[in-house]
Amino acid sequence: MDKKIEHLGLLTGKVLLFGGAYSNLQALEALKHVAEKENILPKNCLSTGDVVGYCAQPEETVQLLKIWGAKSILGNVEIQLRDGAEDCGCDFREGSRCDNFSQLWYPYAQSKLSNNSLEYLSSFPDHISFNYANKKITLVHGSFFNVSEFIFKSSPWSVKSANFLETNSDVIIGGHCGLPFYHKNDNKLWLNPGVIGMPANDGNPSVWYAILDDSDKNFTFKHQNLDYNYKLASKLMQNGLLPEEYARTIQTGIWDNTEILPPVESGLQGFGITL
């Protein structure tokens, strides 16, 4: 299938970047308030996908994003939901804890989403590109080549560089891996804003996003913490249908396991995020 790439042209002013809302309505509500406080227009609010995920309110989260008017690309979860697939397509190792947990939250999400929400999710492009402060920027979920590819800061630059070559981009905005980071090399920047639906395995219940700023006529970016009503999000997840371990992670900021993480990122569990 040919990729659907939405070209936004030239964007100016602040740009809000986020990913992985993961059905966490409380986090998305808090982020929308940030955008309004910062006077960031909805067309400048961009998601790397996986609007639906581990938390308790998939339908409400999708509808809020739609009402807000922020833009998103397809994550692997949206693709699987669109195609009526039986699994989340997260590329978890078969039989792993993450794989077993997905057999709870994914069918739960499927059962809660309206046809209106499924149609909306299906309308997302595979990628978004735009020009900003004299740079070409492309959004990917995992990578340009594989929506479910896990790319971390410690991933070799050779893995990342192919994405810049293929898209002719100066900046790649990535998602999927759940951790905020940036990696610069050869005047290129790989920027993952982090996700808002789950904490970053750093021992803190707050979550992460990023803001681009061109106010001084140059390209600048900054990662930001997002505080939200995580206690309510966790309580709603304790419904007997979703993994209790994920409800606990929402409160502790520590992942139940580090199966998907490379050794470097796994070793940083609970030590906070250094950017």
Results as ranks from 00 to 15, higher is better:
202 D>H: 11
238 Q>M: 14
228 Y>T: 03
241 L>I: 03
220 T>S: 15
173 I>L: 13
195 V>G: 15
174 G>H: 04
173 I>N: 04
216 D>L: 13
233 A>C: 03
198 M>W: 02
231 K>P: 00
220 T>L: 07
225 N>Q: 15
235 K>D: 12
173 I>M: 08
234 S>N: 07
173 I>F: 09
222 K>G: 04
174 G>E: 12
225 N>K: 14
236 L>Q: 13
230 Y>A: 06
187 N>E: 15
191 L>M: 10
210 A>V: 01
189 L>W: 03
204 N>K: 14
223 H>L: 11
224 Q>V: 01
227 D>P: 00
207 V>H: 02
228 Y>V: 03
235 K>L: 13
210 A>D: 03
208 W>M: 10
221 F>S: 04
225 N>G: 00
237 M>V: 00
185 N>M: 13
192 N>T: 01
206 S>R: 08
178 G>Q: 13
177 C>W: 02
238 Q>K: 15
219 F>Q: 11
198 M>S: 12
222 K>V: 06
175 G>C: 14
203 G>C: 09
210 A>P: 05
202 D>G: 12
228 Y>P: 04
195 V>P: 01
196 I>D: 10
209 Y>W: 03
192 N>W: 03
200 A>W: 05
210 A>Q: 02
214 D>A: 11
192 N>V: 02
196 I>C: 07
206 S>M: 08
236 L>A: 04
229 N>I: 00
181 F>R: 08
183 H>C: 11
190 W>H: 06
182 Y>C: 11
237 M>N: 13
193 P>R: 02
236 L>S: 02
212 L>R: 07
204 N>F: 12
183 H>T: 02
221 F>R: 05
226 L>T: 01
173 I>A: 07
216 D>S: 15
232 L>Y: 00
235 K>C: 01
180 P>A: 12
190 W>A: 14
176 H>G: 10
176 H>D: 15
218 N>W: 00
192 N>K: 08
176 H>V: 11
184 K>W: 06
180 P>D: 04
194 G>E: 05
239 N>A: 07
182 Y>N: 14
231 K>D: 12
184 K>L: 05
239 N>L: 10
178 G>N: 13
194 G>W: 05
220 T>M: 03
194 G>S: 13
201 N>P: 09
214 D>L: 01
232 L>P: 00
208 W>P: 00
204 N>C: 05
183 H>E: 10
233 A>W: 01
197 G>H: 14
235 K>R: 13
195 V>N: 15
174 G>C: 15
236 L>V: 04
231 K>T: 09
212 L>I: 00
185 N>F: 10
226 L>S: 02
218 N>M: 07
194 G>M: 09
223 H>P: 05
235 K>T: 09
195 V>K: 06
